[in-house]
Design a protein around this nucleic acid. Sequence first.
DNA 1: TATGAATGAGTATTCATTCAT
DNA 2: TATGAATGAATACTCATTCAT
Lengths: 241, 241, 241, 241
Amino acid sequence: MAKNYLKRKDLIILTAVEIIDQMGVQGLTIREIASRQGISEAAIYRHFANKNEILLGTIDYFSSYDALLLRTVASQNMKAGEGITFLFSSYSEYYENYPAISAVAFTQEAFQLEPEVHQRMGDVIDKRLRFIKEMVVKGQKEGEFARDISSESLVDMIFGTMQFIILRWRANNCEFALKEHMLSTLSRLLEAFSIVKLGNRSALGGGLNQTTPASSFESILPKPGLFLEKGQEKLYKENEG
Amino acid sequence: MAKNYLKRKDLIILTAVEIIDQMGVQGLTIREIASRQGISEAAIYRHFANKNEILLGTIDYFSSYDALLLRTVASQNMKAGEGITFLFSSYSEYYENYPAISAVAFTQEAFQLEPEVHQRMGDVIDKRLRFIKEMVVKGQKEGEFARDISSESLVDMIFGTMQFIILRWRANNCEFALKEHMLSTLSRLLEAFSIVKLGNRSALGGGLNQTTPASSFESILPKPGLFLEKGQEKLYKENEG
Amino acid sequence: MAKNYLKRKDLIILTAVEIIDQMGVQGLTIREIASRQGISEAAIYRHFANKNEILLGTIDYFSSYDALLLRTVASQNMKAGEGITFLFSSYSEYYENYPAISAVAFTQEAFQLEPEVHQRMGDVIDKRLRFIKEMVVKGQKEGEFARDISSESLVDMIFGTMQFIILRWRANNCEFALKEHMLSTLSRLLEAFSIVKLGNRSALGGGLNQTTPASSFESILPKPGLFLEKGQEKLYKENEG
Amino acid sequence: MAKNYLKRKDLIILTAVEIIDQMGVQGLTIREIASRQGISEAAIYRHFANKNEILLGTIDYFSSYDALLLRTVASQNMKAGEGITFLFSSYSEYYENYPAISAVAFTQEAFQLEPEVHQRMGDVIDKRLRFIKEMVVKGQKEGEFARDISSESLVDMIFGTMQFIILRWRANNCEFALKEHMLSTLSRLLEAFSIVKLGNRSALGGGLNQTTPASSFESILPKPGLFLEKGQEKLYKENEG
DNA sequence: TATGAATGAGTATTCATTCAT
DNA sequence: TATGAATGAATACTCATTCAT
């Protein structure tokens, strides 16, 4: 439906994301894109100079809200915890609405043989990490976060944990509530490294969730369900209710 | 050197690991293995029925100490924190001694098109996760860990954080002290979710490190340096001391 | 500049010549022409039924003065040496004014797979050869040229030498004085096979050059410099002053 | 027959030469080679890394006697005229025995888009030209050739004429006697620029032919007839008996 | 006149695998 | 154990050409 209003160039990117989601980067071939789009392979090359341009397109698509998100955090003068929470709240929403795009988050290793693509993905991750680090450092400076832990370690915890939950969600066929799990885990993690009075725990947790601004791009996103026809095999199952 | 005493079959696995480390899974071809081994491509098939067998071999190699580790934890009746620390202490040591093998930890996504391989890797990760979960649950039951966090979330934190540090270490050309950073971060993380009296922090941190048994397989491992010739580009740099 | 007053159809031919000059026949593609012309590939087909028509166009352009030249020689009742000299004087001037067009002279071998184009080029060369042969035969009959050499051999010498100088000039980045070298070499060659009294050498040599009528189409030609932006690599350098 | 004793690698080169001869460089495709050899396209790549290697192979084959020829001339202390004649005598014999190989002499223009191949061919021609130039200069210094012509012009005449005769022979379906025509034309050309007493003409002509050593590689050459199955179209016809 | 979108046939090349020796 | 020679199927990409607008 929505697809019909999109240009071929966009459709190719969407299809590429869909394929990466379902079959991994190795399954992304020009032939597969063409066949899913119902056009010839040559037709693809009217829209992209080569396959790498398509890959770069999926990365750009994957990270298309990054700039906006970071600007939002900055402009709204959010506190460290707030900013970090806003970030992952937005991502989790994006992925819940459009699960396939989350596949792109784990492609870098596979792009190792295409330096340009590898680097572009590295840059995206890098920027996110740098942002989180800035927030952590700021939080430590302003007495929000504990100072007896290196900012680096804290970043590793935050980013590593969030990334792993997304990975597990994907392995789990996107069947648990991603946003909920990400935010509650994040909240509990930040709390554990917050400098707060006793008894605040639940207040803070709830507070973060409540005060988190709704991600501001909800309406622009492709609607959920669009890409849900994928037949992902279960990778490793959840083993607790 | 050590290589000379190894059987061809083992050498092929070692070479495969080396290639995955340097070029990613996409770079692992029969031709590349044969060329690095100085034998014909056909010769590879004397030792492995097909390429997947080689991939499975690298996964087995990657996880070869898992059974031993888990048994050790069980037999020594370690406490939860101790057991988890012992586990990642062992892994970090393994990777520091033989950095290339750590590449295998991030191959699953790339193996998506080979269900058998994909699944085997999934099983390995699954087992590790299950073990950590058991320890966490046990720790919570025995009053070692906080109970106001789901065991699942804690597992996500522990595993996600450790995994991400390894990833970052690789991206960083294996230049920082992996074991040190993994263990100090893990220690700080566990501590944050431990039920302990105030002031114990440093005692516990040190205690964990000190009481951690040296990983018991040190002597069996291929010696370090053997696989260090790789020229990985820096992906995202560490930016804090 | 001149280009602006030309019709698209002509511009396409000029562009095709330019491409053949710079990249060889293999580099001549519809896409390349369209891109250099800043129009769509489909637009080319408004002017030419197919690529071969364009190739034929460049050949016609290349040989566009042939008829005029032969008629001029005939109508002015030139002597054999005069006529031949007039011919190559005209060609050399044409090429010096518009170096790119000289590339077409060496395309026949490459057109082998397009019989129509191959043949048209063959016809052009054939006509020139026939003309030179007629002049040589006439010169021999009228006592201007030596008779103890077959007309065929003499034609081979004249045409082969001229052709090779042009080739060498192109390989040399069009950096030496083509007309001068062609005419002095031709003059010396004709002189060597002329029946003349002793001591005439210099007189004849100079005479030929002086009496050569200026090529009659100077003003019609695209101005020099128009196509000089090409970056031909030096193939084999001149190695004597 | 002879073919049966040759290795695949050699057969591929021979087939490539055959194709270039019959269809031109544009017709030389991996598919065509494979099909003529009755093997798969992939099989070609067991013997050559890529198409360019095959092209370089044909050039090497084409010029395989050059070093020997030049050494022979040097070692036998031939006079200038003798040396030049020996050279073209050898080439003409080579081509008469194996007409297809002469096609390679005219491929450079077509290789323009493959710089490596283009250059290798340029080098071959360059070396030949340099050799001829040396001989010409030597001949002029030693009073064998006229000094009132630039060595450059004389080289243009000699090489251009020989090259053109070969081209015409090919266009003529290899139907006239190449060696005979090349040598008689060359002899007449050299004579015209020789410093000799009157009346010597025939003596010199005959002398050159007689004293020319038989080309010393006759027995190594692929036997004539091997590649004669080609169906070359007539390019431009001979028009004299 | 022009173009945007498309295509069928082709191009070089790669890869895992087989098999006779 | 090893290999040289081979292959079928796939890969990314190119090209001349067509056609509805």
